[in-house]
């Protein structure tokens, strides 16, 4: 792939959510570029990920630790395990810049995380910044803005 079509970009976003819901976390991690970041801001319209608090701002190594931890024998908060479910509104192409190899998509989503009897719904907007690397689309930045980013939450254990 040298230049992705809009449909290929949209399909990528759907596939990412599907890999999370099916708990295919190793494949999911493979969607991220080596220098990628996964960001969940704490503030409405937050611009600074490092000097202001965030719920998450992680590189691929930290995401890898999360994925590995989920498989661990002594991961007590996952005994029993959580499951999750995404409902995506159609991803919209926010911008595409072929020269800069930068494609941005905006996707409103509902995310449900469950653990035994508990089920929690989160509403958010996902912004994917994608690029072609070694012939395949990769995530450079996934930003998830919760509608209620400043609310008090219990455990959020999987990936939104």
């Amino acid at each position: 792939m040298s230049t992705p079509t809009n449909q290929e970009l949209i399909d990528f976003v759907y596939r990412e959510a599907r890999l999370i819901d099916q708990q295919r976390f190793d494949e999911w991690l493979g969607l991220f570029a080596e220098d990628a970041r996964y960001w969940m801001p704490l503030e409405w319209e937050q611009t600074d990920p490092t000097l202001v608090g965030s719920l998450l701002y992680e590189d691929k190594m930290l995401l890898g630790i999360r994925v590995e931890r989920l498989k661990g024998r002594r991961t007590y908060s996952q005994k029993p395990k959580s499951r999750c479910h995404h409902v995506l509104q159609a991803p919209q192409i926010e911008s595409r810049d072929e020269a800069a190899n930068c494609y941005v998509l905006w996707t409103p989503q509902h995310y449900v995380e469950t653990r035994v009897d508990e089920q929690t719904l989160y509403a958010s907007w996902a912004t994917h910044t994608l690029a072609i690397e070694d012939g395949a689309l990769k995530i450079k930045l996934k930003r998830v803005d919760l509608v209620n980013c400043d609310a008090a939450f219990g455990n959020i254990q999987l990936f939104m």
Binding site: S54, L55, L56, R66, Y76, N155
Partner: peptide, 19 residues
Amino acid sequence: QMYNRLINAPTSVVGHDDC
């Protein structure tokens, strides 16, 4: 800020096991 995210957030893998 990194310490706070990694240890004290509702999304923190350390926080999850404490909680």
